[in-house]
Amino acid sequence: MESLKFHRILLKLSGEALSGDSGNGIDPHRARDIALRVKEVREMGVDVAIVIGAGNLWRGRVGLELGMDRATADYMGMLATVMNALALMDSLEGLGVWTRVQSAIEMRSVAEPYIRRRAIRHLEKGRVVIFGGGTGNPYFSTDTAAALRAMEIGADVLIKATKVDGVYDCDPKKNPNAVKFDELTYIETLNRRLEVMDSTAISLCMENKLPIMVLNLWDNSALRKALTGEPVGTLVHP
């Protein structure tokens, strides 16, 4: 068995990770691709918790531009994250990976209410836990929810899974001369206003010394390399 650097992780996924080429909706094939990657990590003996966004189903800023109340728009986004969580749970269990969805907004018919000690117990029993409903409060992003849940469950690292292989000083798709960072401190990330996570999430990780790793989810070897300590992506740490 490979030597592990991290034994418990919080995987932060964007809602778009579940969508097809259109960037909208839920593509069962994409959900299965993610589930296969999570299954591989679980089989390495790593405890896996997941927070997923809602951008494939609902973007609150669109509602705000049309005059919608901010709290209402945020609650709609939280509900959409539960839909994504259920889709990912179905794909995982289809592969034989026992999974539990916990929601910060109570909806007992489809998900467990979020209870920290129960979530930890699920992880100890080898189950993947997907946290839906954000923090349960408006005005907080799923980035912040991911940082908060990572701290609560005692994760060793918060892994931000994206479509690029790390953090750059500018958009590498627009600028071929963009420079990739192998490591960053929290302060550098905040001062440079790099689009790693929102400032609240980064500050929360900084205060609790939780490392953030940004990597390409669609690189078949990236997650495995990250967990065994091989150089991959960008590491944000003290």
Rank of each mutant, 00 (worst) to 15 (best):
I105Q: 01
V157R: 01
M76N: 07
E16M: 11
A35F: 14
M107Q: 10
F140D: 03
I26H: 02
R8E: 08
T185A: 05
Q102C: 04
I120S: 00
F181G: 12
T72P: 00
V232F: 02
G77T: 15
T234A: 09
F131I: 15
L92K: 10
R192Q: 10
K209M: 13
A35T: 08
G166E: 06
R193D: 11
L158C: 08
K225Q: 09
R192M: 14
M68C: 05
G63D: 07
E65Q: 08
L13D: 03
A87W: 09
I9Q: 00
N84M: 09
V157L: 15
E43R: 04
M68T: 05
R42D: 04
D171W: 13
L66K: 10
A87V: 02
R127W: 13
M107D: 12
G23M: 06
M1E: 09
N216L: 12
T99V: 10
T234I: 10
E183Q: 07
R192K: 14
F181Q: 02
F6C: 04
A31K: 03
D165V: 09
G94W: 12
L123A: 07
N24R: 12
V46G: 03
M68N: 01
L148M: 10
T142D: 02
G23K: 00
T142P: 00
L223G: 03
Y139I: 11
S221C: 10
K173Q: 15
N177F: 13
D33W: 15
E93C: 04
L210A: 10
V129Y: 00
M213D: 03
A71T: 03
L235P: 04
A54T: 09
D47W: 08
A178H: 11
M83L: 15
S103N: 08
T72D: 03
G63T: 13
G20I: 09
K12R: 01
V236F: 06
T135K: 00
A104Y: 07
W98D: 15
T189Y: 11
L18P: 01
A161G: 05
W98P: 11
D219T: 05
L10E: 07
E93N: 06
T189W: 05
T72C: 04
A178K: 12
F6K: 01
L190V: 15
L66Y: 06
S221T: 14
D169G: 08
P238N: 14
L88K: 08
T228A: 07
V196K: 00
R118S: 08
A87E: 06
M76C: 10
D27S: 13
N216H: 11
S3F: 07
M76T: 15
E43C: 02
I159K: 02
K174V: 12
L184T: 05
N220A: 14
M206R: 09
K180N: 06
R121K: 09
G94N: 09
K209Q: 13
G77K: 13
E152N: 06
Y75A: 06
R127T: 13
N208W: 06
T142E: 00
R224S: 08
R30M: 12
W58V: 15
L184M: 05
P172W: 14
A71H: 04
G67D: 01
G136I: 11
V129A: 01
S22T: 15
E207M: 13
A226T: 03
I212K: 01
A87M: 08
D47N: 09
D156W: 13
A147M: 06
N56F: 07
L11A: 05
D182Q: 11
K180W: 13
